[in-house]
Design a protein around this nucleic acid. Structure first.
Lengths: 175, 175
DNA sequence: CCAGCCATGTAAATCGTTACATGATTGC
DNA sequence: GCAATCATGTAACGATTTACATGGCTGG
């Protein structure tokens, strides 16, 4: 259900093609809900079949044709209905922690190496988030208001990455 | 693959029935990798078919029979092989953030109510983690050493919950 | 008597990932 | 020339969730 909510939510802000939606997805929702282009296109087909979105084919020159999707009135109602329901609990799935858990069998060096790798990735992610946050901060107030909610989610992303990094340091120090 | 690693990892520490494993799972790995009894039983069957675990039926009085699984030498090798591979990136899936993201359509009151609910759940989770941490801390050194790695994962869980709570407060203040 | 724990499973449905598939355009 | 971007899809597989199914024992 969350994917449906996500797609309707994105289209509610602004219409767009599957491709464009995927990009917006990755730069916002993607931090706490992942998807692939295959899933997105499938979902758009399903939403279209349900009459929750409209689809208009747009020819472009020097680029492939695209299908621009727009949310319908019924789509808006469906979104409201979905939003009215309680949001389920969050789920974290971290293979690194599974590995660490079962990692009595690993040498401290192996663990340390793995931690370093993940730490670097989290540093990168954090940098990305902060950049995004800054680019939102310098927006003129009116445009910025439209990104108010996404901005709030971004802050949790930042807190998470900070937590991860601090933890990496702590664990490395103990190995 | 992570489920396989998790189950072999649990059996590597101590043999047990599917039911017992599920309980241990929920109180440790469950924080960053979820599963159901259906999935666990299926995985145990698969591991058994592969010869990675042994299975002994144990009759009990005043309780149903159970099947106690033990990791085999080949299972140990397979676990090592799995541990040698790089761990993939973590994935967070939080329906609340999807909702918040699409939540321009919601009133601040609705959002606040939802946040309060989640905040309470995170407080509870944090309390559970801290309790677990304490119960590990008072263990005699030898027994405690066996839980060293799980204890490290628990610390990340605590950091996450703290991050979540701080974020809830921050967002509530802004609504 | 009812709820909850112990203990195991099957089946169906949904969701998510990976692989395969195409093809023009732009920038290095 | 090669890689990346734009743009869309199908198919197979694997993972996960939800529903169905059973049944004795324990404690309030």
């Amino acid at each position: 259900m969350s994917l449906k909510m996500a797609v309707l939510g994105l289209l509610d802000v602004e219409p767009g093609s599957g491709y464009a939606l995927l990009q917006r997805f990755r730069n916002s929702l993607g931090f706490f809900w992942q998807t692939t282009h295959q899933q997105l296109y499938k979902e758009l087909h399903a939403l279209h079949a349900e009459g929750l979105v409209e689809c208009e084919e747009v020819a472009q020159d020097s680029k492939p044709d695209k299908k621009v999707y727009t949310i319908t009135a019924r789509g808006g109602e469906e979104l409201d209905r979905l939003l009215a329901g309680a949001a389920g609990p969050a789920k974290i799935r971290d293979p690194l922690l599974v590995k660490l858990f079962a990692g009595q069998r690993l040498t401290p060096e192996q663990l340390r190496a793995e931690l370093e790798t993940h730490q670097k990735e989290h540093e990168q992610t954090l940098a990305t988030y902060r950049l995004l946050q800054q680019s939102l901060a310098v927006l003129p107030p009116k445009r910025r208001a439209r990104y108010r909610h996404p901005e709030l989610t971004l802050r949790l992303g930042i807190r998470f990455e900070e937590a991860w990094l601090a933890w990496c340091e702590e664990v490395k120090a103990e190995l």
